[in-house]
Nucleic acid binder design. Structure first.
Length: 414
DNA sequence: GATGCCGGGGT
DNA sequence: ACCCCGGCATC
């Protein structure tokens, strides 16, 4: 059993975790072979995997039956049952503490892995990667918000009806955030669930609640039946309020107590994820990606330090005025992959934050037919102080990324 | 001269 | 994609 798990596990991770080789000499051999055969072609590989799976199952059977008297014929179904039970346990533990890296997950993986390879369910994680939160997909379709779900935030509230997914998510979490994460998750984490449906910012404290909300309100599932095809999962996200890192990052910024957002569900509860320079807080920011919000009348400067590389920032003008200075300025979070098409901004005043290409071109189309032939349609330099001016050359590491790269400043947009 | 940032190159 | 920098426009 144990051996099987290790070998299987190793096979799955072989492409990534080369550093673990010294732990499993046997597996290393296997792995090397796998690497070699990769060049020869996937078919061979597949064949090999299957054979190995069979061999391992055989081996497993021997080991188990030497200890326990089990009829071999029933073996597979029993294992499946145990699979489910273990998966349920794992999911339960996951739902209570999001980052429990519970060892039972791995053996489970091993087992399900062999079943999968035998042709049951293809594992999306091992082959094609993981969920991406910058999913550029259907922005055009208003009925599918397609929220940016990181594997990390996705994991804890997967419905137990899908044990396989739960396992995969767990693995994805491990793969994605292997190194620095453990200190992020502490018991100071508050978890809420926010509906991502357009113009609905409902926040509930339980996954079941939000699922029900989405089912009934948005998906129009009539009758309060508990039937769920898991679709709701895509329409809500988990809001983690890490009092530690947030407070850490916020120490010099606007004082917004996390509990405040807990106390006021109907309002928009996000603005505590402010700009920080700490990677941990930045990760948190990703977790708290709101997809849509009921249009606020105040100014929201939506950007991140890395907005230059990431999705373009969205600026919603309004009555309130933020005056950026060194210590406190815009509320920022990872801007969701939604294009705010209906914002009534007079084109002449659309001196927007220059984002990457797409946004720039958009500006050109909005601006009334720019003079032809002018090759360098350079936008006039903004008068606001930029990172360079504010922080100075000596504090270059405090600049926003764009400034550091001599790009249009993303922190102090004009 | 200082600053902002586009365009382009390196990895 | 990320990062850096030459060089130009603007202040």
């Amino acid at each position: 059993m144990t051996f099987t798990f290790q070998a299987e596990d190793f096979k799955r991770d072989s492409s990534k975790k080369l550093s673990h080789h010294h732990l499993f000499p046997l597996a290393m051999e296997e792995d090397m072979k796998t690497v070699d055969t990769k060049k020869a072609g996937r078919i061979l590989d597949q064949e090999k995997e299957n054979t190995r799976s069979i061999c391992l199952l055989e081996q497993k059977r021997k080991v188990v039956s030497s200890n326990i008297d089990v009829p071999p014929a029933r073996k597979s179904s029993e294992e499946l049952d145990m699979d489910k039970v273990t998966a349920a346990m794992v999911l339960t533990s996951l739902s209570t503490s999001p980052l429990v890296r519970s060892p039972p997950v791995r053996p489970n993986e091993g087992l399900s892995g062999s079943w999968k390879e035998a042709g049951c369910v293809p594992s999306s994680t091992s082959s094609s990667g993981y969920w991406s939160w910058s999913a550029p997909s259907d922005q055009s379709n208003p009925s599918t918000p397609s929220p940016p779900l990181s594997a990390d935030s996705f994991k804890p509230f997967r419905s137990p009806a899908q044990p396989d997914d739960g396992i995969d998510e767990a693995e994805a979490g491990n793969l994605l955030f292997d190194e620095p994460i453990p200190r992020k998750r502490k018991n100071s984490m508050k978890v809420m669930f926010k509906c991502l449906w357009k113009n609905c910012g409902k926040v509930l404290s339980t996954a079941a609640g939000i699922q029900k909300h989405i089912r009934t309100i948005h998906l129009g599932r009539v009758g309060d039946s508990d039937y769920s095809d898991g679709e709701e999962d895509f329409y809500y996200t988990e809001i983690k309020l890490n009092t530690d890192s947030v407070a850490e990052g916020l120490s010099s910024l606007a004082p917004v107590s996390p509990s405040q957002s807990l106390a006021s569900p109907p309002t928009f509860p996000i603005p505590d994820s402010s700009r920080t320079e700490t990677p941990y807080a930045r990760t948190d920011t990703k977790l708290m990606t709101p997809l849509s919000r009921s249009a606020p009348t105040t100014l929201y400067l939506v950007h991140t330090d890395h907005a230059y590389q990431a999705t373009p920032p969205v600026t919603i003008p309004g009555s309130a005025k933020f005056t950026p200075n060194g210590s406190s300025f815009s509320i920022s979070w990872q801007s969701p992959p939604v294009t705010f098409t209906g914002i009534p901004v007079s084109p002449t005043h659309h001196h927007h934050p220059a984002g990457p290409g797409e946004q720039r071109q958009h500006a050109h189309t909005v601006l009334s037919s720019p003079p032809r032939g002018a090759v360098s349609l350079r936008k006039p330099r903004g008068e606001g102080k930029k990172c360079r001016k504010v922080y100075g050359m000596e504090n270059r590491d405090m600049w926003c990324t764009a400034c550091r790269w001599k790009k249009a400043c993303q922190r102090f947009v004009d």
